[in-house]
Amino acid sequence: MTLALKTMDLAKTFDIGQRLIGPPRAQVHAVHPVSLEVRQGETLGIVGESGCGKSTLARMLVGLTPPTSGSIEIEGRALDRADPAAFGRLIQYVFQDPVSSLNPRKTIRQILEVPLRLLHGLRGAALDARIEELFDAVNLRPEFLDRYPHEFSGGQAQRIGIARALAASPRILILDEPVSALDVSVQAQVLNLLADLKAEFNLTYLFISHDLAVVEAVSDRIAVLYFGSVVETGPAEKVFAAPRHPYTKLLADSAPVVGRPLGGAQSGELPDPLNPPPGCAFAGRCPRASDLCRAEVPLLRAIEGDQFAACHHPREC
């Protein structure tokens, strides 16, 4: 088994209220140390609600946000942040908002050319051939190449975004909410396209989303994030069917399922990031919370087989 991607205690702390000199006013731990492993050819789904740190994690993986601590390994080699081009050839990113991720003043051809020229040094006929190949791979017609981004619908723009990511010929794609800005009838097209591309180019995916059903449908394994920490990981078919962490259970129960009665209106919210609680971040909303939970942060540990949870009192299944 080869690992495509491995993070070791990757963490990010943001400074709030930066001053001209001296320490910042406050710090927010957006991502607590996270250790993840993604196998070659696998799709790891990452779910979490807003503010759980999933986008920060993704941006750290592609080098857009420098981590505060920890390290990243790709295919067994530690990632060198000094060379962005080397970075770009290994790992690429597909953005949530397809329209905002395309420069409005460039044609699609100009947008696609950049990674091919800069990362792979393609020129002339080879460049044109590769662009057409990529465009074909994402099922777009070549006459679109000389148009500007505003002429495309969200679904088409997202295909262009995917083509640009593929242009780097990366080993790993980070998909950050790639379909949540799209219309429901178009989402499935893009998801299926991503599945086809993965098989065709032998890619590894990190699929980030807040939509549990979508993540479950596309992932091999799923990691659940809450308040900057991984609270549960496991095989996709087990995580929501037999959740071990009470938060995962709450998520699964909250997802709309036709015919299922609406859940109880239990209230409860995220803790204040500027003033986090000492123990488990979920303890305040958790029916199983004990004094231990309020005092000590639970660590991610194997519960059964390859299902892990960060919980002092995991659910029995």
Partner: peptide, 22 residues
Amino acid sequence: LISCVPELGGGRRVLAAIPGLP
């Protein structure tokens, strides 16, 4: 429309996409 939107509990699958655009 019903079948192209995944529902939780369906497991990993290929979705029944609608081609084209609204």
